[in-house]
Write a protein that binds this DNA or RNA. Structure first.
Length: 518
RNA sequence: GCUGAUAUAGUGUAGCCGGUCAAUCAUGGAGGACUCUCACUCCUUCGACUGGGGUUCAAAUCCCCAUAUCAGCACCA
């Protein structure tokens, strides 16, 4: 028996995968079918399917109004949005303003602006500051059931007990004492910092983060913008209450909330609520920009940044200013997905996405950075005509006059080319003596320029260019560009051989454009 | 320290209930075609399973250990 088996196995070993499949099919067509079934369930979506989502979903985007939204927010916003669009259902914007210390009054509006820029499919907006009474009643319910207690221990003392897995004295109080204590909190009977309501969890929980975490605090030093309160809910209470009351089916958030999910589960259990499905995506590091709201605010105050839309920041308004399309951000975020792995955000990938959406709509123009005036000998005045978009005559032409001298980018001069092709005009030979450059007309034959490996460069006439400042994150560059660009304020253009830019404004001092990417 | 999670090309991502994976797609690099842009489009090409053990006929896929990274252990969210 064994000998036969060994022999068979050896035979199979020598077969190629295809041959094995054939053999399987001959022996058992059913198994063969099963084999291929597994492969069918490949998905076409960018994001994995959600479990329990077939009947539609209720999801939320829950920013804290402490400043404008940035790339980190965009990930949560677009991930949730994408799923709600896929499965149908409701997308709720929940403004988490339960900490007056972290509320910037101007942020309420900025958040709304950023959300409409992202074009999220929001169905309903709620403010947690409107819902304090709901939080209080759940709090009371928990206390009256003996699930929570009013704790007056000092912060450090409590932490020490927590680490030692021992109960604090307050934990012994009866439900009645707890209720009385909570009423006293509401009546202003406690100083800020002197009291907290804690949930009874499991003091022996292996994760110290789970042990008797706080639900409410007293805060009087900072008034709230929108609500007159002394007792403030902490996020685990307010989030759990709202997620349940608003009927969340799925919660997608960063893995920094993974411990909070565990804590909120205790509240759900006490209240007998059904838990939503939770998904936690990994941390996203973004280099080159400051992401922390407080860091940005500081920089603005110190004058390091010009404002929330400073091109050095990772805010959505800064991206918008740089000509990044919300579609590109959406696509980049969906591409990144909900993996739990920590990742580094790639500007390169975002730029590639943006180019996809922006290229076809951006007409081409000349921008001469750091212009150097060069006289061209032997050429008649004439007018060059260049397409606004290569290959598409229907989009029209730019007429660029040549009158004997040209402005060339200083960088090209530095390269000491012996011959260049002035794009859409003619070839010139360049001679250098010291700092001066002279150019001599060298025919109009494009092929000659190609054969001579002469670079084809952009140019303008001294009398024809409009001053243009191009804002780069690395520093501004000044130059001249075609005057017609003045009519394109707010639009994307491509400065040939320079890159894409958004025309920001046009005034008496010239144009300002913000560089996007190549 | 405690608790938990993760580890695929430069970057992001697919695969991960074992075989069809000398590993997908995108981005990026190199080269080329097209083109009066270093854009677009197209073609070719480069580049990765953290390390070590184990299980198995077979491991990117399962198990263990190591390492690294991240998160939480707030009267923030």
């Amino acid at each position: 028996m064994k000998a036969v088996l060994v022999q068979v196995i050896d035979e199979i070993k020598d077969l190629s995968p295809d041959e094995r499949e054939d053999a399987l099919y001959r022996v058992s067509p059913e198994l063969f079918a099963q084999l291929h079934q597994k492969k069918e369930k490949r998905r076409e979506h960018g994001l994995p399917d959600l479990i329990g989502a077939d009947g539609g979903v209720v999801m939320r985007f829950a920013p804290n109004p402490s400043g404008p939204l940035h790339l980190g927010h965009a990930r949560a916003a677009f991930l949730n949005d994408t799923y709600v669009r896929r499965y149908g259902g409701r997308y709720i914007l929940r403004i988490e303003d339960t900490d007056p210390k972290r509320v910037d009054p101007t942020a309420y509006e900025m958040v709304q602006e950023d959300i409409s820029w992202m074009e999220l499919g929001i169905h309903e907006t709620v403010y947690q500051s409107d819902r304090f009474s709901l939080y209080y009643s759940v709090g009371k319910e928990l206390i009256s059931r003996g699930a929570a207690y009013v704790c007056t221990c000092e912060n450090d003392a409590f932490r020490e007990m927590k680490m030692k897995k021992v109960a604090c004295p307050c934990r012994m109080q009866t439900a009645e004492e707890g209720m009385a204590g909570f009423d006293q909190m509401l009546d202003g009977g406690y100083e800020e910092g002197g009291v907290t309501v804690r949930l009874k969890t499991d003091l022996c929980a292996p994760d110290p983060a789970m042990r008797d975490f706080p639900l409410f605090r007293v805060l009087t030093s900072v008034p709230h913008e929108r609500v007159d309160a002394i007792v403030y809910p902490l996020m685990n209470l307010s989030v759990a209450v709202d997620d349940h009351l608003l009927g969340m089916t799925h919660v997608i958030r960063g893995k920094d909330h993974i411990a909070n999910t565990g804590r909120q589960r205790f509240i759900y259990d006490y209240m007998g609520w059904d838990l939503p499905h939770y998904l936690h995506y990994g941390r996203m590091s973004i280099d080159g920009v400051v992401l922390s709201t407080s860091g940005m605010r500081e920089g603005i105050q110190e004058g390091v940044y010009t404002g929330w839309d400073d091109v050095h920041l990772g805010t959505l308004r800064a991206l918008a200013r740089r000509g990044i399309s919300p579609l590109a951000v959406r696509s980049a975020m969906v591409d990144i997905g909900i993996g739990e792995t920590d990742i580094s955000f790639s500007w390169e990938n975002l730029y590639a996405k943006n180019k996809e959406v922006v290229d076809a709509g951006a007409d081409r123009f000349f921008f001469v950075a750091d212009p150097v005036e060069v006289t061209v000998h032997g050429a008649e005045p004439q007018v060059a005509s260049a397409m606004r978009y290569p290959g598409d005559p229907k989009r029209g032409y730019r007429m660029i006059p040549f009158e004997g001298t040209v402005l060339l980018p200083a960088e090209e001069i530095r390269k000491r080319h012996s011959m260049v092709r002035l794009k859409d005009l003619f070839n010139v030979r360049l001679q250098y003596s010291g700092d001066t450059v002279t150019a001599t007309y060298a025919g109009t034959d494009l092929k000659e320029a190609r054969d001579a490996r002469a670079p084809i460069i952009q140019w303008l006439s001294p009398g024809y260019g409009t001053l243009c400042r191009l804002l780069y994150p690395e520093g501004d560059i000044s130059g001249v560009c075609e005057p017609v660009v003045q009519d394109l304020v707010g639009q994307m253009v491509q400065f040939e051989r320079v890159g894409f830019a958004r025309v920001e404004r046009s005034d008496s001092s010239g144009l300002t454009a913000v560089y996007s990417h190549r």
